[in-house]
Write a protein that binds this DNA or RNA. Structure first.
Lengths: 216, 216
DNA sequence: TAGATTGTTAATCGATTAACAATC
DNA sequence: TAGATTGTTAATCGATTAACAATC
């Protein structure tokens, strides 16, 4: 007789992670001002989901509440931040120093400097165009793409924003396969074949526009 | 005996609409070059879903294929474009002429001018800052927010991109309640309470970053 | 203790996948 | 006709909601 030992593949649905980010944001807003405890009901109302869903989502990661009382807002915020790795500084790079890349670079750097708990720090920007190399974006120099792999690996950077033209996106992500980059946010309107070990999310404005136009 | 006439509330799941936009993009790419017909299998492979899903999605809107043959690529592209309202020019405005607003304005205008079938046309930009009013973005003048309602209504514009700071986003969308705007793409990192009849989608980079950081 | 709210199990709902008769 | 592929129905899967015992 064969006993199969099933390793509980603790698979967390994507939607749960996304909602966790919403809970974190809501908790960051109430923490200081209101009472020290929040119920799943209150948190749910702020985020726009059901109380049962809040409890279910949190239950995937542990027991954070007290029966009859609710969740300690500060503690829950810290725990969710830990789960989402937002309790440490996350360095990232931007590849593609066009208008969108520069706008996102300035935006995130400003947030990092002004918001206490904002964890994402832009560390470097890259472009293939020699005319752009050397240009400074909010204090960060744009470097040539050929330096990318070395710099990313030296500084152990795991995250990249991809703001290159559609035609360049696939070749850039192929380059990233040789680096420590593990997560990529792709702004190019194209489906990328990701190298093994790299997770790609798409932030495609054209797709959002098409989606919205359906409701006109 | 009472006969209940059930109006088939043709509720289309959000994910289906999103995939429709992906099918449209894939079809636009193959149309000219390859064979005139595509099977659900081929289309599925290009988009990264199953063939059954392609057929199921399309079946929600009609019968577009021929058994044993597949779908005529050009015809299917036109039909999906019609469903997504991408068969006509969709005028939209950008509210908030900061860096992100300007970058998105230039990006979409360039696409509109260079891509044959790109349906989204930026018609006006607005800001509350008098220093920004009058400035031109790729030929489009930035106007004061106080002119927004009048211009949007005169030109029957239904779509808006919201690129104002988080603190201003809710008051702007309240203003939109008085206009013909029906769909809003919100870039501010905050949940908006939409006026009746307005559909809001969020394009929140911070949320995407949190989501991705989970996988580091 | 009494009231409230969690964590969890069971019921429901909806979306995806598989399968196949219809038919080009 | 024979082979292929659709449109659709049934089976599966997974996520959401409801309900409630446990307990603060």
């Amino acid at each position: 007789m064969l006993e199969v030992i099933c390793i509980k593949e603790s698979r967390v649905p994507e939607v749960v992670i996304r909602r966790l980010a919403l809970y974190l944001r809501a908790l960051s807003q109430i923490d200081a001002s209101e009472s020290a405890f929040v119920s799943s009901q209150e948190l749910a109302a702020k985020v726009g989901v059901t109380a049962a869903q809040v409890r279910k989502d949190l239950a995937m990661f542990g027991e954070f509440g007290k029966q009859g009382v609710g969740y300690h807002a500060g503690f829950l915020r810290e725990e969710i931040a830990r789960i989402l790795k937002a309790d440490r500084t996350i360095e990232f790079v931007i590849i593609g120093a066009g208008e969108l890349g520069i706008a996102l670079g300035r935006y995130t750097l400003r947030k990092y400097e002004s918001e206490q708990a904002y964890p994402f720090m832009l560390t470097a920007m890259f472009d293939i165009d020699p005319a752009k190399v050397g240009h400074k974006v909010a204090g960060i120099s744009v470097r040539h793409i050929s330096e990318m792999a070395r710099i990313v690996n030296e500084r152990c950077i795991g995250m990249a924003l991809l703001t290159v033209p559609e035609s360049a996106a696939q070749s850039v992500i192929d380059l990233l396969g040789e680096t420590r980059i593990k997560a990529v946010l792709n702004f190019a309107p194209t489906r990328l074949v990701a190298p093994r070990g790299i997770r790609v999310h798409n932030a495609d404005v054209s797709l959002d526009l098409h989606h919205l136009a359906f409701f006109l």
